[in-house]
């Protein structure tokens, strides 16, 4: 028995869409609240993958000014040993020394300034 001729549809291409026809203005997408978006995303298991910012160690310090001065040989080590012995930092030792000197020398105005700086 002779075979029927098939329909030769294989080489018919669907109409191409002109790329320019897709570029017209369109309705803007509604803005979404970002916090709400994050919440929905996290509930769906989509979480932030960015590394958390490095936190600064310790709190903010009041000691922000730098002063360099010379010392006699071995004095830096003595200074450090005194601070360690008292269980305080170098800059705290300096302040204690200044306060003690101002009180001993009865330099009242300077002592007032010291108290207002360190309060």
């Amino acid at each position: 028995m002779a075979e029927r001729a098939g329909l030769d549809l294989d080489d018919i291409n669907e109409d191409e869409v002109d790329i320019a026809s897709l570029t017209g203005p369109k309705n803007p997408k509604p803005k979404v609240d970002r916090k709400e978006l994050n919440k929905v995303s996290e509930e769906a298991g989509f979480v932030s993958r960015q590394a958390p910012r490095q936190r600064r160690r310790g709190g903010r310090t009041a000691y922000t000014q730098q002063k360099n001065f010379k010392m006699r040989p071995d004095m830096p080590e003595l200074f450090a040993d005194v601070a360690d012995g008292l269980g305080i930092k170098d800059y705290e030792l300096l302040e204690m020394a200044i306060q003690a000197l101002l009180a001993k020398q009865k330099m009242k105005d300077e002592l007032e300034r010291f108290k207002s700086i360190t309060s």
């Binding site: 978006l37 994050n38 929905v40 995303s41 996290e42 769906a44 298991g45 989509f46 979480v47 932030s48 993958r49």
Partner: peptide, 9 residues
């Protein structure tokens, strides 16, 4: 290629 906030955004 991960389930990230970037994808969700």
């Amino acid at each position: 290629g991960t389930a990230s906030i970037a994808v969700a955004n």
